[in-house]
Design a binder for these strands. Structure first.
Lengths: 209, 209, 209, 209
DNA sequence: ACTTCCGGGACAACCCGTTCCT
DNA sequence: AGGAACGGGTTGTCCCGGAAGT
């Protein structure tokens, strides 16, 4: 008897995981309110029963997307990268490149998944806001951390306030992505990158070491 | 005294205008997709018949809000302010103060009306994107203009690229507002302002005239 | 003073008449329930106010179309033609030709205006039914009349019942038009015409005079 | 005894079937455009959700009514009856009696369900036209068939064109029903039947076998 | 007398998150 | 886990009328 299909359960990976992934795509494209449960189900080939077996509600699914998909992706691209460095300028550029590899040109069309959700949901759903905020904090803290290490390592002038710089960089990044998305063109983002480079250089000590 | 243009002070002002204003509020709070026509009508005391007499569709109303309310407000707060100046640093700060006066703490809770709409609608409705983009362009051009005049007037170093600086400032601003909105706290925005000041100072000539 | 514009009312023909004519076209195309007052107004270039100045309601307009446009057209094509003859076979064919000239291929696409309205409105609006029935009666009476004169003139066998023949011819005609309309093809109507000819021949005396 | 196919006799029969049946009644009474989905739902005790689970749109429901209810009824009353005969005159009369039994006096008030829909929908919805036309063709073919067998069996003169006769009979029938419906009186239909009998007799061979 | 602007409100179809029974 | 049913909510349509101007 054929028992090569040892784990038929994994053949379709785990329904829950498939739902979360499909939901991420749909939310990325249409926003949370614009995402329809039926569309997610169509994509996964599952049914209502399966969905409500795994998730209490649509909101619940949205939070799962935040906590699992988006959290993971920010962590991987940003937090891990910055944590390993004491040179902010280089580390930030490295992270930006990673992000470009991961999302490709979708940034231009669809923006940053985290910020999209934040802008849409924060004012209308406190639960979402909290989950999203947790990620932003971790992100910011990662930048603050690399800045502090940068100061200690002499890679960054010590007159800066790491918290302010972190906010400044993060805000600029999200804003730059947003501008490009609205323009459907990479142009604004490239300009932003150029000027961000110039700005970051001003953080370098005048006569290095 | 010229009173020929004095409108007969119609008791109910003008249904169309009332609808647009109420719609702006609703969109600002709930996003365009979250805005419900019925809610707008409740607020104005008007009915469906009146609404569809003035607007062909909900989308149409949304575009009117963009073109009339938001366009006007950005123009008044930013474009006019910057156009009158050749000192970017001061002019930008002046505009930021105007904005604060106009929107008050709503920035913290609801963000920037223009950017909210941009993030929500640009990827899913080309018409919206175009109308929104027109405003962003005017805004950017205003910053570019004041930068160029700043260079000529010797208030800004001439090694900058006005276009890049404009994008950088605009992106940072929208991102900073977004961060504060997500945090429901002025803190991130204040930090952003501080660092933006620092950044702007780096644009000043070393030994001012 | 200039009174050359003696009849400015007729300059635009009389709004009421224009409305009735446009409504006839719309009803012919979409049925009474499918006809929209706004569409009629668009066609005439008039507005709601003008409409409700002339007609108490949409139903009212529909009745006016029946009484004025359709009544006139049936009278002209059928009643007048048959009234002048004592040879039913020829007269009926003459009328059919007139109808073809008047409506052209619209019969194929849209059917008989009178019968369309009858089928749609008779069961749901007694007033319509009455107005329509009046026309059908006049039509039938015209056939009965020519049949009776045909019998007297020896052009038709006297064993027929003129009433039954009239109903039979009328029913067949409307049914034949309906079949063609549903097929969007003249074919069924031509076949019907052929067989109607055969049938009419059976009404002729065997050895004429 | 095989009871595997015995449906568990679900208490509420089958929502879809109930909807189709109720819709047929509503369409029969008010036409397709006049039929309101809500009215159908009220009759069945079901809700919007149930409806749009089974049908993609109102149009879809209409087509289901055509394909399932009307198709079946024409087949049963006409096609099956004529297929079993080689004597057109008798067979047609038998079918007419069956129809009378099935629809009772509703013919007088509401006409023929198939023809009602045909007249209303053919010009404005191609999909409807096609589905309706399929039924008309089957109906006509059944008459053509019995005519051809009638000729072979010597029950009908061989100078007729079966296609034309079929159209003629069908057109007359639908027209006769329509006339009676408009008059709200059986009279015109009875007269039509009388004359149809006379006409059919003319198709009989002079000296039968 | 006739027209236009503006508005009213019921109701249409359709969507969508959710629950319940199997 | 499957899928039928639920029910409230959404946008948009359409017939109709009032107020005021010309």
């Amino acid at each position: 008897m054929n028992n090569r299909n040892v784990k038929p359960a994994t053949a379709h990976k785990n329904a829950r995981e498939r739902i979360v992934q499909a939901a991420f795509r749909e939310i990325y494209k249409h926003g949370f309110q614009g995402m329809r449960v039926d569309a997610v189900l169509d994509k996964t080939g599952l049914t209502k029963g399966a969905f409500y077996h795994h998730f209490a509600s649509k909101q619940n699914l949205g939070l799962a997307v935040v906590d699992e998909v988006i959290y993971g992706s920010i962590n991987e691209i940003w937090v891990d990268t910055l944590a390993a460095s004491d040179d902010p300028v280089n580390a930030i550029q490295e992270a930006l490149e990673k992000a470009a590899l991961c999302y490709g040109m979708e940034f231009i069309n669809l923006g940053c998944p985290l910020n999209n959700l934040a802008q849409e949901m924060s004012p209308i759903d406190e639960e979402f806001r909290l989950h999203i905020n947790r990620i932003f904090h971790q992100w910011r803290d990662a930048i603050v951390g690399v800045m502090q290490r940068g100061v200690l390592a002499g890679n960054v002038i010590n007159s800066i306030d790491p918290q302010s710089v972190a906010v400044f960089v993060l805000a600029g990044l999200e804003g730059g992505i947003g501008l490009a998305k609205n323009e459907r063109d990479l142009g604004p983002f490239v300009r932003w990158l150029d000027e961000m480079d110039r700005y970051l250089e001003t953080l370098r000590p005048k006569n290095p070491k």
